[in-house]
Design a protein around this nucleic acid. Sequence first.
DNA 1: TATATTTAAGATAAAATTGTCTTAAAACTT
DNA 2: AAGTTTTAAGACAATTTTATCTTAAATATA
Lengths: 150, 150
Amino acid sequence: MIFSKSCVYGLRAMIYLASISREGYVSIKGLSEKLDISFHFLTKILQELTGADLLESMKGPKGGVRLTKSGRCITLKEVVEAIDGPAIFTECVLGLPGCGSEKPCPMHDMWEGTRDEINEIFTTTSLQDMSKEGKAKDLRITPDGKFVWG
Amino acid sequence: MIFSKSCVYGLRAMIYLASISREGYVSIKGLSEKLDISFHFLTKILQELTGADLLESMKGPKGGVRLTKSGRCITLKEVVEAIDGPAIFTECVLGLPGCGSEKPCPMHDMWEGTRDEINEIFTTTSLQDMSKEGKAKDLRITPDGKFVWG
DNA sequence: TATATTTAAGATAAAATTGTCTTAAAACTT
DNA sequence: AAGTTTTAAGACAATTTTATCTTAAATATA
């Protein structure tokens, strides 16, 4: 798995949030049911995203979470970095500490181009891009179901 | 981390093995010391690679492991697949079961190209390519040290 | 044949990740 | 103000990954 499960759950939730109106808050309970993710686990993940200032939250009835910015302005990279950290965009395959152009490992050059491409694509793709994609093609964002919104 | 620690250890060991003569067996003890990997843990990983027919092993004095084929003929993909499985070369980012062109997720199209490129590069790069790279540039394969061989 | 060496295999332990549960704090509703 | 709803936070448990330890089996060597 390229990303941790937490990260995947976070991405699914964020893409969903980008697919609906940003007016008002969305309850995590409802989110967890729609996306079929454990409520408490999802809560923790979304707390990380709140801490990273990608979500804002509100307690109490009518409370929940919502994107801080338009989904158009939030990149996939921001979400991944907030949960899994920047390693996937920066590190070499052999995981040697400080591997870089100054002190490369044998696989450095071979991997560099692909890694840069991953970085590029996650930097230039927004949550809105993904939600539009899902909506337009009616793709699924849940294990069994379809892409869900509204 | 794009690959598991086991997989990274396996890659380091295989690249090292490809960098030395295939005459005779290399003891896992020696390998573990050179590469700075726990002996027992490395043993288990190499057993997987033996099971996958990428290594052959011999017990007793003068025993150890060696590549079954020339490092020129073993691809990085074979090593990764033997340890981490094929997911990285086939699966989509959102980890939805059975995601593919028939039943895609919103991130499917966006990721497909990069995933194919990863598959391509790991399929066409051999252990020998990496060992040559390391030898030629005197690159490191151990956390602190240099590329080690002989 | 006896002994030493080395991988194989499986039990056990430690650490990290994933998942659950409980309580507290905040905000809305009446 | 009281009660309800919801996120926040942290304790706890289960699972997976990583790492260690012990014993068995195979092989070479003397």
